[in-house]
Computed example of a mutant assay.
Amino acid sequence: MNELRKLQKKELEILTAVVKVCEENNIKYIIMHGTLLGAVRHQGFIPWDDDIDICMPRESYDKFIDIGEKFLPSNLKIQHYKTEENCPNIFAKVRDENTIFLQKEHVDLDINQGVFIDIFPLDRIKKGNHQIAKEYWRKGIFNILNECYDIGYVKGIKRKSSVLIGYSIHFILWKGLWRFVDRNKFIEREDKRRKKLHETGDDCVFYSVDRKVVGKYSRITERKKYLFEGQEFWGPKNYDEVLKKLYGEYMVIPAEKDRITHQPLKVELECNNIEEK
């Protein structure tokens, strides 16, 4: 078994454990993004994919953050600003602390660096082109500011026109004008803003956290089961609509140069230096 396949199997173990918690605690989830595409096109992982994405309606997401770790195996930890002090993301991950999946943007961070799956909240937003564009830019600006807190992320910026912006945000804002701003509080304020918008929002939701792709909230939360690596998992019933909006002609295999992965610096699936619990 090659190394990528071993990584996929480890991620599937994490997904299976998370889904067990969801099923036992009335927490709704759907597989999304590349995981949904893999289920539809390959009945499992996209052959070159190295992650798993699931989404939860906001109410289920908050419930999972609050209680999930009580029911997960002891080696699995929820990484979220509420559960880990230096968590750099506004969304959540479930990581296996007995493994390593080191990304270049996180190399200097004192956080759990284990193999993970991503969990994103499904938040309602206001409908209408102006409101959608406004929220898209608000999320985008937050993401840029938050990511540029980490010098590892800034060093990894490839677009030359963005390098100066990244270093300016890091050194002038975070290390200068905002040096007394608590990053955890910065993330928390934005998360609370998004939650409040969900509570007052319309039947509209972003299908992806970093793209202006929207659909009806009521439609994406309608679920059916999909075969993925020999197991069945919940996904959006309207998969064709979702995948066409996200990927266009999604059944066409992309050229090798367009196959995106995390490209980790280091992966270890069994860490012998971690004490048994």
Rank of each mutant, 00 (worst) to 15 (best):
124 R>C: 11
25 N>W: 02
149 Y>H: 15
212 K>N: 15
170 H>E: 09
275 E>I: 13
229 E>V: 05
249 E>N: 15
126 K>I: 04
113 Q>F: 05
170 H>N: 15
263 Q>N: 15
19 V>R: 07
186 F>C: 09
79 Q>D: 10
22 C>T: 04
31 I>N: 09
197 L>Q: 13
115 V>R: 01
131 Q>M: 14
107 V>W: 08
16 T>W: 03
179 R>L: 08
198 H>M: 03
256 E>C: 02
215 G>K: 01
104 K>H: 10
172 I>W: 11
8 Q>S: 08
48 W>G: 08
250 Y>W: 09
162 S>F: 15
90 I>W: 14
8 Q>E: 06
50 D>N: 03
266 K>V: 10
68 G>K: 02
4 L>E: 05
162 S>H: 14
100 I>R: 12
169 I>V: 13
134 K>W: 10
231 Q>L: 13
275 E>L: 14
239 Y>M: 02
214 V>P: 01
176 G>H: 00
241 E>P: 03
244 K>F: 11
220 I>R: 05
190 E>F: 15
134 K>Y: 12
84 E>K: 03
92 A>C: 10
51 D>L: 00
231 Q>W: 02
197 L>S: 03
119 I>C: 07
187 I>F: 00
71 F>L: 08
181 V>C: 13
69 E>A: 09
28 K>Q: 14
87 C>H: 08
27 I>Q: 08
222 E>R: 01
258 D>Q: 01
24 E>P: 09
267 V>K: 01
267 V>A: 03
102 L>D: 12
127 K>A: 12
142 F>S: 01
243 L>G: 10
188 E>Y: 12
262 H>V: 02
105 E>I: 07
18 V>L: 10
160 K>H: 11
232 E>V: 00
54 I>P: 09
92 A>Q: 09
60 S>K: 04
83 T>R: 14
